[in-house]
Nucleic acid binder design. Structure first.
Lengths: 195, 195
DNA sequence: GGTAGATATGTCAAGAGTGACATAGTAGAA
DNA sequence: TTCTACTATGTCACTCTTGACATATCTACC
Protein backbone atom coordinates (compact mmCIF):
# COMPACT_ATOMS: atom_id res chain seq x y z
CA UNK A 1 0.00 0.00 0.00
CA UNK A 2 1.16 3.52 -0.72
CA UNK A 3 2.10 5.85 2.13
CA UNK A 4 -0.93 8.01 1.38
CA UNK A 5 -3.08 5.02 2.26
CA UNK A 6 -1.54 4.88 5.73
CA UNK A 7 -1.99 8.62 6.16
CA UNK A 8 -5.70 8.19 5.50
CA UNK A 9 -5.94 5.14 7.76
CA UNK A 10 -4.18 7.11 10.48
CA UNK A 11 -6.83 9.82 10.31
CA UNK A 12 -9.70 7.33 10.13
CA UNK A 13 -8.29 5.52 13.17
CA UNK A 14 -9.14 8.64 15.17
CA UNK A 15 -12.56 9.46 13.70
CA UNK A 16 -14.92 8.67 10.86
CA UNK A 17 -14.46 11.12 8.01
CA UNK A 18 -15.61 11.85 4.47
CA UNK A 19 -13.24 12.28 1.57
CA UNK A 20 -13.82 16.00 1.81
CA UNK A 21 -13.02 16.02 5.55
CA UNK A 22 -9.88 13.99 4.91
CA UNK A 23 -8.73 16.47 2.31
CA UNK A 24 -9.21 19.30 4.82
CA UNK A 25 -7.17 17.40 7.43
CA UNK A 26 -4.36 17.10 4.91
CA UNK A 27 -3.72 20.81 5.37
CA UNK A 28 -3.52 20.63 9.17
CA UNK A 29 -1.55 18.67 11.74
CA UNK A 30 -0.92 15.64 9.54
CA UNK A 31 -0.86 17.80 6.46
CA UNK A 32 2.29 19.55 7.58
CA UNK A 33 4.24 16.37 7.02
CA UNK A 34 2.04 14.57 4.53
CA UNK A 35 -0.32 16.42 2.28
CA UNK A 36 -2.63 15.37 -0.53
CA UNK A 37 -5.25 16.93 -2.78
CA UNK A 38 -8.75 15.64 -3.12
CA UNK A 39 -7.83 14.25 -6.54
CA UNK A 40 -5.54 11.83 -4.74
CA UNK A 41 -7.76 11.19 -1.74
CA UNK A 42 -10.89 9.98 -3.54
CA UNK A 43 -9.19 7.34 -5.69
CA UNK A 44 -7.13 6.18 -2.71
CA UNK A 45 -10.29 5.76 -0.63
CA UNK A 46 -11.74 3.60 -3.40
CA UNK A 47 -8.60 1.44 -3.38
CA UNK A 48 -8.67 1.16 0.42
CA UNK A 49 -12.30 0.08 0.32
CA UNK A 50 -11.58 -2.46 -2.40
CA UNK A 51 -8.80 -3.86 -0.21
CA UNK A 52 -11.15 -4.12 2.75
CA UNK A 53 -9.33 -1.53 4.89
CA UNK A 54 -12.25 0.89 5.09
CA UNK A 55 -16.03 0.89 4.57
CA UNK A 56 -18.38 3.74 3.87
CA UNK A 57 -22.02 4.65 4.25
CA UNK A 58 -23.82 7.54 2.61
CA UNK A 59 -24.98 10.20 5.05
CA UNK A 60 -27.82 12.39 3.83
CA UNK A 61 -27.60 16.00 4.93
CA UNK A 62 -30.23 18.70 4.81
CA UNK A 63 -28.18 21.84 4.64
CA UNK A 64 -25.41 20.42 2.49
CA UNK A 65 -24.81 17.86 -0.25
CA UNK A 66 -24.88 14.24 0.91
CA UNK A 67 -21.55 12.67 1.78
CA UNK A 68 -19.81 9.32 2.11
CA UNK A 69 -18.50 8.78 5.61
CA UNK A 70 -15.61 6.32 5.80
CA UNK A 71 -14.77 4.09 8.74
CA UNK A 72 -11.63 2.00 9.26
CA UNK A 73 -12.15 -1.78 9.48
CA UNK A 74 -10.49 -4.21 11.89
CA UNK A 75 -8.25 -5.32 9.02
CA UNK A 76 -7.36 -1.71 8.28
CA UNK A 77 -6.48 -1.11 11.90
CA UNK A 78 -4.27 -4.22 12.04
CA UNK A 79 -2.47 -3.22 8.85
CA UNK A 80 -1.91 0.28 10.20
CA UNK A 81 -0.58 -1.03 13.53
CA UNK A 82 1.95 -3.20 11.75
CA UNK A 83 3.09 -0.41 9.43
CA UNK A 84 3.62 2.05 12.27
CA UNK A 85 6.50 0.14 13.85
CA UNK A 86 8.24 -0.80 10.58
CA UNK A 87 11.34 1.23 9.77
CA UNK A 88 10.51 3.90 7.19
CA UNK A 89 11.89 3.47 3.69
CA UNK A 90 14.60 6.14 3.47
CA UNK A 91 13.37 8.80 1.08
CA UNK A 92 15.60 11.70 0.05
CA UNK A 93 14.80 15.09 1.55
CA UNK A 94 14.11 17.70 -1.12
CA UNK A 95 14.36 21.35 -0.17
CA UNK A 96 14.45 23.76 -3.07
CA UNK A 97 15.82 26.57 -0.92
CA UNK A 98 18.89 24.53 0.02
CA UNK A 99 19.47 23.98 -3.68
CA UNK A 100 19.30 27.72 -4.21
CA UNK A 101 21.77 28.17 -1.37
CA UNK A 102 24.15 25.88 -3.21
CA UNK A 103 24.29 28.36 -6.09
CA UNK A 104 23.98 31.49 -3.98
CA UNK A 105 27.60 32.47 -4.69
CA UNK A 106 26.55 33.37 -8.25
CA UNK A 107 23.83 35.77 -7.17
CA UNK A 108 23.51 39.41 -6.23
CA UNK A 109 24.09 39.48 -2.44
CA UNK A 110 21.34 42.04 -1.82
CA UNK A 111 18.74 39.93 -3.61
CA UNK A 112 19.94 36.78 -1.88
CA UNK A 113 19.74 38.45 1.52
CA UNK A 114 16.17 39.54 0.79
CA UNK A 115 15.20 36.02 -0.25
CA UNK A 116 16.58 34.37 2.87
CA UNK A 117 15.23 37.09 5.14
CA UNK A 118 11.76 36.51 3.69
CA UNK A 119 12.04 32.76 4.11
CA UNK A 120 13.24 33.30 7.67
CA UNK A 121 10.12 35.31 8.39
CA UNK A 122 7.85 32.72 6.80
CA UNK A 123 9.27 29.96 8.97
CA UNK A 124 9.20 32.11 12.09
CA UNK A 125 5.52 32.78 11.49
CA UNK A 126 4.80 29.10 11.03
CA UNK A 127 6.78 28.43 14.20
CA UNK A 128 4.77 31.00 16.14
CA UNK A 129 1.55 29.41 14.95
CA UNK A 130 2.79 25.97 16.07
CA UNK A 131 3.83 27.37 19.44
CA UNK A 132 0.33 28.72 19.95
CA UNK A 133 -1.13 25.31 19.25
CA UNK A 134 1.43 23.79 21.57
CA UNK A 135 0.47 26.12 24.41
CA UNK A 136 -3.16 25.30 23.82
CA UNK A 137 -2.52 21.55 23.81
CA UNK A 138 -0.42 21.68 26.94
CA UNK A 139 -3.08 23.65 28.74
CA UNK A 140 -6.04 21.69 27.49
CA UNK A 141 -4.68 18.14 27.24
CA UNK A 142 -2.10 18.31 30.03
CA UNK A 143 -2.23 14.82 31.50
CA UNK A 144 -2.68 12.96 28.20
CA UNK A 145 0.53 14.30 26.71
CA UNK A 146 2.53 11.89 28.89
CA UNK A 147 0.40 8.92 27.79
CA UNK A 148 1.67 7.46 24.49
CA UNK A 149 -1.41 5.24 24.19
CA UNK A 150 -3.58 8.31 23.50
CA UNK A 151 -4.08 9.88 20.10
CA UNK A 152 -3.53 13.25 21.79
CA UNK A 153 0.04 12.30 22.59
CA UNK A 154 0.51 11.33 18.94
CA UNK A 155 -0.83 14.67 17.70
CA UNK A 156 1.41 16.46 20.15
CA UNK A 157 4.41 14.46 18.93
CA UNK A 158 3.88 15.47 15.30
CA UNK A 159 3.45 19.06 16.43
CA UNK A 160 6.77 18.90 18.26
CA UNK A 161 8.42 17.75 15.04
CA UNK A 162 6.92 20.76 13.31
CA UNK A 163 8.27 23.10 15.96
CA UNK A 164 11.77 21.68 15.79
CA UNK A 165 11.68 21.71 12.00
CA UNK A 166 10.55 25.33 11.68
CA UNK A 167 12.88 26.55 14.40
CA UNK A 168 15.83 24.93 12.63
CA UNK A 169 14.78 26.19 9.22
CA UNK A 170 14.34 29.76 10.46
CA UNK A 171 17.67 29.61 12.27
CA UNK A 172 19.44 28.47 9.13
CA UNK A 173 17.79 31.15 6.98
CA UNK A 174 18.84 33.77 9.50
CA UNK A 175 22.42 32.51 9.42
CA UNK A 176 22.54 32.62 5.61
CA UNK A 177 20.98 36.08 5.46
CA UNK A 178 23.34 37.39 8.16
CA UNK A 179 26.37 35.91 6.41
CA UNK A 180 25.44 37.42 3.07
CA UNK A 181 24.73 40.83 4.61
CA UNK A 182 27.78 40.94 6.85
CA UNK A 183 30.16 40.03 4.05
CA UNK A 184 32.48 42.71 2.67
CA UNK A 185 31.97 43.63 -0.97
CA UNK A 186 34.04 41.57 -3.41
CA UNK A 187 37.42 43.10 -4.38
CA UNK A 188 36.17 44.71 -7.59
CA UNK A 189 33.48 46.76 -5.92
CA UNK A 190 35.46 47.32 -2.75
CA UNK A 191 37.96 49.59 -4.46
CA UNK A 192 35.19 51.91 -5.56
CA UNK A 193 33.37 51.94 -2.24
CA UNK A 194 35.86 51.82 0.65
CA UNK A 195 36.92 55.16 2.10
CA UNK B 1 12.48 24.24 -16.27
CA UNK B 2 12.18 21.55 -13.63
CA UNK B 3 14.04 21.90 -10.33
CA UNK B 4 16.28 18.99 -11.28
CA UNK B 5 17.55 21.09 -14.17
CA UNK B 6 18.69 23.80 -11.75
CA UNK B 7 20.32 21.21 -9.52
CA UNK B 8 22.38 20.06 -12.49
CA UNK B 9 23.17 23.61 -13.58
CA UNK B 10 24.25 24.37 -10.02
CA UNK B 11 26.76 21.54 -10.12
CA UNK B 12 27.97 22.42 -13.61
CA UNK B 13 28.46 26.03 -12.51
CA UNK B 14 31.24 24.76 -10.24
CA UNK B 15 32.91 22.26 -12.59
CA UNK B 16 32.51 20.40 -15.85
CA UNK B 17 31.01 16.96 -15.26
CA UNK B 18 29.72 13.91 -17.09
CA UNK B 19 26.27 12.46 -16.52
CA UNK B 20 27.89 9.75 -14.47
CA UNK B 21 29.76 12.27 -12.33
CA UNK B 22 26.57 14.26 -11.83
CA UNK B 23 24.76 11.15 -10.67
CA UNK B 24 27.51 10.51 -8.12
CA UNK B 25 27.26 14.11 -6.85
CA UNK B 26 23.56 13.57 -6.32
CA UNK B 27 24.45 11.33 -3.40
CA UNK B 28 26.76 13.86 -1.75
CA UNK B 29 26.51 17.46 -0.57
CA UNK B 30 23.75 18.50 -2.99
CA UNK B 31 22.29 15.03 -2.93
CA UNK B 32 21.32 15.37 0.71
CA UNK B 33 18.70 17.91 -0.26
CA UNK B 34 18.10 17.03 -3.89
CA UNK B 35 18.81 13.58 -5.27
CA UNK B 36 18.30 11.95 -8.63
CA UNK B 37 19.11 8.67 -10.32
CA UNK B 38 21.00 8.40 -13.56
CA UNK B 39 17.75 7.55 -15.33
CA UNK B 40 16.62 11.08 -14.57
CA UNK B 41 19.98 12.77 -15.11
CA UNK B 42 20.66 11.64 -18.68
CA UNK B 43 17.31 12.72 -20.15
CA UNK B 44 17.48 16.02 -18.24
CA UNK B 45 20.95 16.70 -19.66
CA UNK B 46 19.57 16.15 -23.14
CA UNK B 47 16.76 18.61 -22.44
CA UNK B 48 19.20 21.17 -21.03
CA UNK B 49 21.38 20.85 -24.09
CA UNK B 50 18.40 21.21 -26.39
CA UNK B 51 17.47 24.39 -24.51
CA UNK B 52 21.00 25.75 -24.91
CA UNK B 53 21.81 25.72 -21.21
CA UNK B 54 24.69 23.24 -21.50
CA UNK B 55 27.01 21.85 -24.15
CA UNK B 56 29.00 18.65 -24.20
CA UNK B 57 32.05 17.20 -25.83
CA UNK B 58 33.09 13.56 -25.91
CA UNK B 59 36.25 12.82 -23.97
CA UNK B 60 38.08 9.67 -24.98
CA UNK B 61 39.65 7.80 -22.13
CA UNK B 62 42.21 5.01 -22.23
CA UNK B 63 41.57 3.23 -18.98
CA UNK B 64 37.78 3.68 -18.98
CA UNK B 65 34.85 3.97 -21.39
CA UNK B 66 34.60 7.31 -23.17
CA UNK B 67 32.38 9.94 -21.59
CA UNK B 68 30.45 13.09 -22.43
CA UNK B 69 31.63 16.04 -20.39
CA UNK B 70 29.03 18.77 -19.96
CA UNK B 71 29.70 22.45 -19.53
CA UNK B 72 27.26 25.20 -18.58
CA UNK B 73 26.72 27.94 -21.19
CA UNK B 74 26.45 31.69 -20.58
CA UNK B 75 22.70 31.35 -21.07
CA UNK B 76 22.57 28.51 -18.55
CA UNK B 77 24.48 30.59 -16.04
CA UNK B 78 22.16 33.55 -16.49
CA UNK B 79 19.08 31.37 -16.07
CA UNK B 80 20.56 29.82 -12.94
CA UNK B 81 21.43 33.21 -11.46
CA UNK B 82 17.87 34.43 -11.93
CA UNK B 83 16.34 31.28 -10.46
CA UNK B 84 18.53 31.39 -7.34
CA UNK B 85 16.98 34.59 -5.98
CA UNK B 86 13.35 33.74 -6.87
CA UNK B 87 11.23 32.64 -3.89
CA UNK B 88 10.89 28.86 -3.88
CA UNK B 89 7.50 27.39 -4.76
CA UNK B 90 6.22 26.07 -1.43
CA UNK B 91 6.26 22.30 -1.58
CA UNK B 92 4.85 20.19 1.26
CA UNK B 93 7.36 18.42 3.48
CA UNK B 94 6.83 14.67 3.52
CA UNK B 95 8.33 12.67 6.37
CA UNK B 96 7.07 9.14 6.68
CA UNK B 97 8.31 8.82 10.27
CA UNK B 98 6.18 11.77 11.39
CA UNK B 99 3.19 10.03 9.85
CA UNK B 100 4.05 6.92 11.84
CA UNK B 101 4.29 9.06 14.96
CA UNK B 102 0.76 10.25 14.29
CA UNK B 103 -0.50 6.67 14.68
CA UNK B 104 1.99 5.64 17.35
CA UNK B 105 -0.75 5.50 20.02
CA UNK B 106 -2.05 2.31 18.35
CA UNK B 107 1.25 0.48 18.54
CA UNK B 108 3.14 -1.69 20.99
CA UNK B 109 5.22 0.80 23.04
CA UNK B 110 8.28 -1.45 23.11
CA UNK B 111 8.35 -1.77 19.33
CA UNK B 112 7.71 1.95 18.90
CA UNK B 113 10.56 2.80 21.27
CA UNK B 114 12.89 0.53 19.30
CA UNK B 115 11.89 2.18 16.03
CA UNK B 116 12.49 5.72 17.25
CA UNK B 117 15.69 4.78 19.04
CA UNK B 118 17.01 3.31 15.78
CA UNK B 119 16.03 6.38 13.82
CA UNK B 120 17.64 8.56 16.47
CA UNK B 121 20.89 6.63 16.01
CA UNK B 122 20.70 6.91 12.22
CA UNK B 123 20.33 10.67 12.36
CA UNK B 124 23.02 11.02 15.00
CA UNK B 125 25.41 9.10 12.75
CA UNK B 126 24.56 11.31 9.78
CA UNK B 127 25.05 14.33 12.03
CA UNK B 128 28.46 13.10 13.15
CA UNK B 129 29.48 12.60 9.54
CA UNK B 130 28.37 16.14 8.69
CA UNK B 131 30.23 17.52 11.69
CA UNK B 132 33.41 15.85 10.46
CA UNK B 133 33.01 17.49 7.08
CA UNK B 134 32.30 20.78 8.80
CA UNK B 135 35.48 20.58 10.86
CA UNK B 136 37.44 19.76 7.73
CA UNK B 137 35.89 22.67 5.79
CA UNK B 138 36.50 25.14 8.60
CA UNK B 139 40.12 24.05 8.86
CA UNK B 140 40.81 23.84 5.16
CA UNK B 141 38.70 26.66 3.73
CA UNK B 142 38.74 29.00 6.73
CA UNK B 143 38.79 32.44 5.10
CA UNK B 144 36.44 31.60 2.21
CA UNK B 145 33.58 30.61 4.51
CA UNK B 146 32.90 34.28 5.25
CA UNK B 147 32.86 35.15 1.54
CA UNK B 148 29.39 34.53 0.04
CA UNK B 149 30.72 35.06 -3.46
CA UNK B 150 32.67 31.80 -3.28
CA UNK B 151 31.25 28.38 -4.08
CA UNK B 152 32.92 27.16 -0.91
CA UNK B 153 30.67 29.36 1.17
CA UNK B 154 27.68 27.91 -0.70
CA UNK B 155 28.75 24.33 -0.03
CA UNK B 156 29.29 25.20 3.61
CA UNK B 157 25.82 26.77 3.79
CA UNK B 158 24.11 23.61 2.51
CA UNK B 159 26.18 21.59 4.97
CA UNK B 160 24.99 23.78 7.83
CA UNK B 161 21.40 23.09 6.78
CA UNK B 162 22.18 19.39 6.94
CA UNK B 163 23.63 19.72 10.42
CA UNK B 164 20.65 21.64 11.75
CA UNK B 165 18.26 19.24 10.07
CA UNK B 166 19.88 16.09 11.45
CA UNK B 167 20.35 17.56 14.91
CA UNK B 168 16.67 18.47 15.07
CA UNK B 169 15.54 15.14 13.70
CA UNK B 170 17.68 13.19 16.18
CA UNK B 171 16.48 15.38 19.05
CA UNK B 172 12.86 14.74 18.13
CA UNK B 173 13.39 10.97 17.81
CA UNK B 174 15.03 10.94 21.22
CA UNK B 175 12.11 12.83 22.73
CA UNK B 176 9.58 10.41 21.23
CA UNK B 177 11.58 7.34 22.30
CA UNK B 178 12.04 8.75 25.81
CA UNK B 179 8.35 9.58 26.12
CA UNK B 180 7.26 6.13 25.03
CA UNK B 181 9.75 4.42 27.34
CA UNK B 182 9.08 6.60 30.38
CA UNK B 183 5.33 6.13 30.16
CA UNK B 184 3.65 3.87 32.71
CA UNK B 185 2.05 0.72 31.33
CA UNK B 186 -1.64 1.06 30.53
CA UNK B 187 -3.93 -0.13 33.36
CA UNK B 188 -4.52 -3.61 31.90
CA UNK B 189 -0.90 -4.68 31.68
CA UNK B 190 0.21 -2.92 34.85
CA UNK B 191 -1.68 -5.32 37.07
CA UNK B 192 0.17 -8.30 35.61
CA UNK B 193 3.62 -6.73 35.65
CA UNK B 194 4.09 -4.62 38.77
CA UNK B 195 5.78 -6.38 41.67
C1' DG C 1 39.57 -17.34 -21.19
C1' DG C 2 36.01 -16.19 -17.90
C1' DT C 3 34.11 -13.25 -14.72
C1' DA C 4 33.37 -9.75 -11.32
C1' DG C 5 33.17 -4.82 -10.57
C1' DA C 6 33.58 -0.01 -11.58
C1' DT C 7 32.73 3.19 -15.26
C1' DA C 8 29.58 5.01 -18.60
C1' DT C 9 25.13 5.89 -21.11
C1' DG C 10 20.76 5.08 -22.19
C1' DT C 11 15.31 3.45 -22.31
C1' DC C 12 10.91 2.15 -20.43
C1' DA C 13 6.94 1.01 -17.53
C1' DA C 14 4.68 2.12 -13.47
C1' DG C 15 3.48 4.86 -9.45
C1' DA C 16 3.06 9.24 -6.95
C1' DG C 17 1.54 13.88 -7.07
C1' DT C 18 -0.35 18.27 -9.20
C1' DG C 19 -3.52 21.26 -11.54
C1' DA C 20 -7.27 21.66 -14.38
C1' DC C 21 -11.71 20.23 -15.69
C1' DA C 22 -16.29 18.64 -14.46
C1' DT C 23 -20.64 18.22 -11.88
C1' DA C 24 -23.92 19.19 -8.30
C1' DG C 25 -26.39 20.68 -3.81
C1' DT C 26 -27.09 24.46 -0.55
C1' DA C 27 -26.89 29.11 1.55
C1' DG C 28 -26.69 33.89 1.51
C1' DA C 29 -26.08 38.24 -0.59
C1' DA C 30 -26.87 41.49 -4.31
C1' DT D 1 -32.82 35.79 -10.03
C1' DT D 2 -28.26 35.59 -10.43
C1' DC D 3 -23.92 35.24 -8.54
C1' DT D 4 -20.65 33.78 -5.23
C1' DA D 5 -18.88 30.65 -1.99
C1' DC D 6 -18.66 26.48 0.48
C1' DT D 7 -19.57 21.64 0.53
C1' DA D 8 -18.98 17.33 -1.85
C1' DT D 9 -17.25 13.87 -5.28
C1' DG D 10 -15.07 12.57 -9.16
C1' DT D 11 -11.83 12.25 -13.66
C1' DC D 12 -7.93 13.27 -16.60
C1' DA D 13 -3.58 14.72 -18.54
C1' DC D 14 0.81 15.77 -17.34
C1' DT D 15 5.14 15.82 -14.66
C1' DC D 16 8.35 13.86 -11.50
C1' DT D 17 10.59 9.90 -9.69
C1' DT D 18 11.81 5.15 -9.17
C1' DG D 19 13.32 0.57 -10.39
C1' DA D 20 14.18 -2.52 -13.81
C1' DC D 21 16.10 -3.55 -18.12
C1' DA D 22 19.75 -2.98 -21.52
C1' DT D 23 24.32 -2.33 -23.43
C1' DA D 24 29.21 -1.45 -23.60
C1' DT D 25 34.21 -0.48 -22.03
C1' DC D 26 38.03 -1.37 -19.21
C1' DT D 27 40.70 -3.42 -15.19
C1' DA D 28 41.94 -6.98 -12.20
C1' DC D 29 41.81 -11.38 -10.63
C1' DC D 30 41.31 -16.45 -11.03
Amino acid sequence: MATLGYAILGLLAQEMLSGYDLTQRMRGRVGNFWSARHSQVYPELARLEEGGYVTHRVVEQQERPDKKVYEITAEGLDTLKEWVVQPPSPKPTREELVLKAYSIWLSDPAKAARLFRNEQRRHEEQLASYEETRAWMEGEWGEDLARPETSRFASYATLRRGIIYERGYAEWCRWVADSVERAPEPAGEREEKSQ
